[in-house]
């Protein structure tokens, strides 16, 4: 009798352990399969031309130079605009308004924005910028990316400032430092590594974003540094090229996909290293 119960419990447990191990294997296998496909298909497409020539017409040779430039340029501007705003807002939530209802509401809204569909942000910026200016532009693309950066930076800044021990703030206050100076010179400095991690993660996030650029920055087949004109970006070029029937465009799309993934994963590993060194 007892033995039967034991055997059944052991059996159930065994099945359960095998299933959860299998789940972990499936997750890792998915990552490996995706990375393998990227390396296999993308590596062959990489050449000097990818970095030096612009996106070609179907059938002719070319590269991704204008798209790489566009992606880097728009991401950098978006981060430069979004980071200070996000840091200041996160500072308000953690330092000034920690227990107020206003901070509670802002925190809630920020967490919604953090996971809101990025295509909605594209629609918003389209109506706000593109519809008013009557043409697509890199400005609009940067605005959309900045809107994505802000909630990420707000969240990490607040989290990191909350980790700073209150004794540090009290020490600053006891030597007579005004609040603003104690925040900038003491708490920000103590939370620096964490905030940098947050910014890096934000860069990683926007450099792969496609949906918000579709109808803001649009695309541009040529080299352009004019923020008033449409600008190419890697994700949009991948989208366009992969959906085309041309073999050479597919090769370039894979090369671009490999570049983006390498950049994004390097950034996030880097961010994690900084984070773990702080601990």
């Amino acid at each position: 009798m007892n033995r039967a119960i034991y055997a059944r419990r052991r059996g159930v447990n065994g099945v359960f352990l095998v299933l959860s191990t299998a789940a972990a294997f499936i997750g890792i296998a998915a990552l490996i399969l995706i990375l393998y496909a990227l390396l296999k298909n993308g590596f062959g497409g990489l050449s000097a031309a990818v970095f030096t020539q612009n996106t070609p017409a179907p059938g002719s040779a070319g590269g991704l130079a204008n798209a790489i430039f566009g992606s880097i340029f728009m991401s950098i501007v978006a981060v430069i605009v979004g980071t200070p705003i996000g840091m200041l807002a996160g500072t308000y939530l953690a330092e000034y308004g920690r227990h107020t209802w206003l901070a509670f509401v802002i925190r809630f809204i920020n967490d919604i924005l953090l996971s809101a569909p990025s295509i909605i942000i594209g629609l918003f910026v389209y109506q706000l910028v593109v519809a008013r200016m009557h043409h697509f532009s890199a400005w609009a693309g940067m605005a959309a990316l900045a809107v994505i950066v802000i909630p990420v930076v707000v969240r990490t800044t607040e989290n990191m400032l909350l980790l700073v021990p209150n004794t540090l703030r009290e020490a600053a206050a006891s030597i007579g430092a005004p609040r603003a100076i104690s925040i900038r010179a003491v708490t920000w400095r103590a939370a620096r590594a964490g905030i940098v991690t947050g910014v890096l993660l934000a860069v990683a996030r926007i450099s792969g974003e496609t949906a918000p650029l579709l109808f803001t920055a649009l695309n541009n087949q040529f080299w352009s540094t004019d923020p008033n004109a449409p600008m190419a970006s890697l994700p949009i070029v991948i989208f366009q090229f992969a959906n085309s029937p041309y073999e050479d465009w597919h090769t370039l799309a894979w090369a671009g996909a490999l570049l983006i993934t390498a950049a994004v994963l390097t950034l996030s590993i880097f961010a994690r290293l900084i984070e773990s060194r702080q601990k």
Binding site: L38, A204, T210, P235, I238, A242, T261, V264
Partner: peptide
């Protein structure tokens, strides 16, 4: 961390 466009092309 893998961008969604990569899932798309894959």
């Amino acid at each position: 961390g893998v961008p969604s466009i990569i899932y798309g092309i894959w």
